[in-house]
Design a protein around this nucleic acid. Structure first.
Lengths: 295, 295
DNA sequence: ACAGCTTACGGCAGTCGTAATCATG
DNA sequence: CATGATTACGACTGCCGTAAGCTGT
């Protein structure tokens, strides 16, 4: 159960091959084989089927432990590295697609005026990747969006001692094609839509898994998955009647062929939060509080 | 940043001494010294002041990473051990003091009738210890209580893939001495009480830290801390006007000298949840679903 | 002066790479 | 038969304990 062994195990599962994992990690094929062997001896069970390489039941369970463990591990290392490093001259801001809103632009302008020598990069990422990158200090400030009950924080997986500040809460709406029978409604209840046809766009709209988690039911099954990060592509699919999606109302304002019907019950809002490693006077902390003040 | 080094580091901080930590871990004093030295070399900063032994700023930050990391670590090991172990013939149920309620008793009776050979132990623990013990499989089923918004889950620190099921939600009340000016009220708002005199009883009542987290303010400062696990001791202190506490209304019903005034705003409930490692057909899983059904 | 942390050093275990071996599609 | 996992083995690193050195109270 050494971290290196777990890292190798995860790599082997992800690559589906011992040799590929060896290449990725800079090891020999033999070393990878030995890692897996000692891990299996340690755990006392077979973790991988060979030919083709795939995790066993116990292996899948171990993965559920190993992935978050390695994330926290990397986060701890990155945090320690930053605490002893020189003050940064460069800032990377990560955003999920729907977290980038108008006030963000102007607040960022203020920051750049006061710190002209700071090189700023904006990077659009999915939620999981953003959390990982903030935790491992690959991005200095993350702006995440998601769904939550009013005033409730977003429910993000725990990746170490990160600071979160609320930035905004705005209404959610169901995006329907203009021709949809429900498009005339002034409000909708989520439970009525459990069996509707949905598009799962986990990086653009609210992931259907979150709807299932909130409702506690098994509905909201995707008819189609959308692996993009722009709203326009998604609304095009919705307009063509491929399914529904849940998005912040504001993002749907000018989308052609779409009717946005506010979500009535349950009371849920689209929330954005700033996420960063607590380090006083860092540009990230300053920008986060400026964003919170402007919100 | 090897787990063994982190474990040693945490032990040294907890014990406040290299030699004591060495004794606890079965190492030599010298080995502990070497562990700390390599850790400090790795991190690139001094982690501990010596004479007296206390963590530095960077050390405190590392502790915030190390403690949850080691918990998850132990949880993963324990889970793997259980997956390969023989089915248990003994069950340990951990409960926080206020989680033990009447229906639990009768449901447990049912289980013991159907499984007469199962040795059952009940262990009362604080919240943090209970979570740790469930994660590390020292207890098979945990019943935790806490405060949450209605239908919201309890916000417990993440300790790996545990299953939680809701058992009950009941009203909360502020426990006041009978002579208190507010004792006649039919309902109270939490915000009005931010500057009241409170008793912090983290293992018996709702911890004041939770009140602060929910309200987002800096109030609810304890005038007195109560480190016990029985309600009677706490209510005695409240009756003697040492301060207030927030508890489930039911627990205050027959307490002498106490007025229990329901909490109106914000809308918060006392919630209990069952917590266990997903292993189908285990006694823990069965009992948890029976408890949920009986609730 | 003494308790307690640090440093020096040697034995031992564990890890990785090379290379030979084995198994499967 | 070829790709790719496993096993054998040797060189090397790193870890822990013993024992001597150092330092603040």
């Amino acid at each position: 159960m050494d971290p290196h062994l777990l890292r190798t195990f995860v790599a082997v599962v992800d690559q589906g091959s011992f040799s590929e994992a060896a290449r990725e990690l800079g090891y020999t094929q033999s070393a990878v084989s030995q890692h897996i062997a000692t891990l299996e001896r340690d755990v006392g069970a077979v973790l991988l089927h060979r030919r083709p390489v795939a995790p066993t039941g116990v292996g899948i369970r171990l993965l559920e432990h190993a992935r978050p463990l390695l994330l926290r591990w990397d986060a701890a290392r990155a945090d320690m590295a930053r605490m002893t490093a020189a003050p940064a001259t460069r800032m990377v801001i990560g955003v999920t697609p729907l977290a980038m809103t108008a006030p963000f632009g102007s607040t960022l302008t203020d920051l750049r005026l006061t710190r002209p020598h700071l090189a700023v990069t904006i990077r659009v990422l999915g939620r999981a990747a953003l959390l990982r990158d903030v935790a491992t200090a690959a991005v200095d400030l993350g702006l995440v969006d998601g769904m939550a009950a009013p005033t409730d924080p977003l429910h993000l997986p725990d990746a170490g001692p990160l600071t979160t500040t609320a930035l905004s809460e705005r209404p959610l709406a169901v995006a329907l094609p203009a021709s949809h029978p429900l498009a005339g409604r002034t409000g909708l209840s989520l439970t009525d839509l459990a069996d509707a046809r949905w598009i799962d766009a986990p990086d653009t709209a609210i992931p259907l898994a979150h709807l299932r988690a909130v409702s506690g039911t098994d509905g909201y099954r995707p008819a189609l998955c959308y692996e993009g990060s722009d709203v326009r592509g998604l609304t095009t699919l919705i307009a063509a009647d491929h399914g529904l999606a849940l998005l912040p109302q504001r993002a749907l304002d000018d989308q052609p062929g779409i009717h946005a019907v506010p979500l009535n019950t349950p009371r849920l809002v689209h929330r954005t939060e700033a996420l960063y490693q607590a380090l006083p006077d860092s540009p990230a902390a300053l920008l986060a509080s400026a964003l919170a003040a402007d919100a």
